Lab assay of single mutants.
Amino acid sequence: KEMRNAYWEIALLPNLNNQQKRAFIRSLYDDPSQSANLLAEAKKLNDAQA
């Protein structure tokens, strides 16, 4: 469930391009235990690109 939530949050971040989203989501599938960390990194990048 945590992975699914992280997937959708990443997919809906407005300032990431599709390539960036795909990279984060690929990492999510590679290591679901890192969901919270990956989401935090994606949000950080999203904010930096705002």
Rank of each mutant, 00 (worst) to 15 (best):
W8E: 12
R26D: 15
P32V: 05
L45M: 08
D47I: 09
N46M: 01
P32F: 08
D30P: 02
K21G: 00
S33K: 09
N15S: 07
D47A: 09
S35K: 14
Y29I: 13
D47K: 11
N17V: 03
E2K: 11
N17I: 03
P14G: 05
K43V: 09
D47P: 01
I25E: 06
M3P: 11
P32E: 05
K44Q: 07
S35G: 09
N37H: 09
P14L: 04
D47G: 06
N37S: 09
S35V: 12
A36F: 05
P14M: 05
A36E: 09
K43L: 07
L38I: 14
S33L: 06
Q34R: 08
K1G: 08
W8F: 14
I10F: 02
S27A: 15
L45Q: 05
K44V: 09
L16T: 00
A36R: 09
L38C: 03
Y29A: 14
A50M: 10
D30K: 05
Q20Y: 01
P32A: 04
R26F: 11
K1V: 11
R26I: 14
N18M: 11
A36D: 13
D30Q: 12
N37M: 12
A48P: 02
Q34Y: 05
A48I: 11
K43G: 04
L39H: 02
A6N: 06
A11G: 05
A36C: 11
M3E: 11
Q49F: 05
A23W: 10
N46H: 02
L28T: 02
A48L: 10
E41N: 12
A40N: 13
Q20F: 02
K1L: 09
R4P: 14
Y7R: 13
E2Y: 01
R4M: 15
L39M: 09
F24N: 02
A40F: 08
K21W: 01
Y29K: 14
A23N: 10
K43I: 10
S35R: 11
L12E: 13
D47R: 09
N17Y: 03
D30R: 09
A48K: 12
I25F: 15
S35T: 07
D30A: 13
L13F: 05
K1R: 07
D31S: 09
P32K: 03
S33Y: 06
K44N: 06
N5G: 12
D47T: 07
K1D: 14
N17P: 02
K21C: 03
F24M: 07
K43C: 03
D31M: 06
L38K: 04
A50Q: 09
L38G: 01
L45V: 11
N17C: 07
S27E: 10
A23H: 14
Q49D: 03
A36T: 08
M3L: 14
N5T: 13
I25Q: 13
S27M: 07
L16Y: 00
Q20K: 02
Q20W: 02
K44S: 12
L38S: 03
A48F: 10
R22P: 02
D47L: 08
N18E: 13
L13Q: 03
E41A: 12
P14K: 07
D31K: 06
A36Y: 07
Y29V: 13
I10C: 01
S33M: 09
Y7C: 06
Q34H: 09
W8C: 15
W8Y: 14
Q19A: 10
A42R: 00
A6Y: 10
A6K: 09
L45K: 04
A48R: 09
E9S: 05
A40K: 12
N18D: 08
L13D: 00
L13W: 02
R22S: 15
A40G: 06
I10P: 00
Y7Q: 12
D30H: 14
Y29Q: 14
K43E: 04
Y7F: 14
L39N: 01
F24D: 01
Q20E: 04
K44D: 06
E2V: 06
W8D: 11
P32M: 06
A23G: 10
S35H: 10
E2L: 04
E9K: 08
S35E: 13
A40W: 06
I25K: 02
L28H: 01
S33F: 05
K43S: 06
S33R: 08
A36K: 13
A6C: 04
L38Q: 03
N17Q: 05
I25Y: 14
D30C: 13
L16G: 00
I10H: 00
N15C: 06
L39T: 05
L28S: 02
K21Y: 02
E41F: 05
L16S: 00
K21P: 00
N5Y: 11
P14R: 05
D31P: 01
Q34N: 10
N18W: 12
N15L: 03
N5L: 14
A42L: 01
Y7G: 13
R22N: 15
Y29N: 14
Q19S: 12
A6M: 15
L13G: 00
A42W: 00
N18L: 13
A40V: 08
S35F: 08
R26C: 14
S35P: 03
I25C: 04
N17F: 03
Q49M: 10
K44L: 07
D31F: 11
E9V: 12
M3T: 13
N5F: 11
L13A: 05
S35Q: 10
N46G: 02
N37G: 10
I25S: 02
I25V: 05
N46C: 02
N37E: 11
D31V: 04
E41R: 09
D31A: 07
E2T: 11
S33T: 09
R22F: 08
A36G: 09
E41Q: 13
M3F: 07
A6V: 05
Q19K: 10
S33A: 11
W8G: 04
M3G: 12
I25A: 04
L12Q: 08
A42T: 01
S27K: 14
L28K: 00
Y7I: 11
F24K: 03
A50W: 05
N15T: 03
K43M: 04
R4H: 15
N17K: 04
E9A: 10
N17L: 04
S27Y: 09
M3I: 15
Q20V: 04
Y7P: 03
N46E: 01
A40C: 06
A11P: 01
S33P: 04
A42F: 01
A23S: 13
E9D: 05
L45N: 02
K44T: 05
L16P: 00
D30S: 09
N5D: 10
K21I: 04
L28D: 00
N15W: 10
L38E: 01
K21T: 02
L13N: 02
A48C: 08
N5C: 10
I25H: 10
S35W: 07
L13Y: 05
E41P: 00
L28Y: 03
R4D: 11
A48G: 08
I25W: 15
A48H: 09
N5S: 15
R26G: 12
A23R: 10
R4N: 14
A50L: 09
I25T: 03
L28M: 11
Y7D: 02
N5M: 13
A40E: 07
Y29C: 11
N18C: 15
Q49Y: 08
E2G: 10
F24C: 04
Q19M: 05
S27G: 08
Q19R: 06
A11I: 14
K43W: 05
A36I: 08
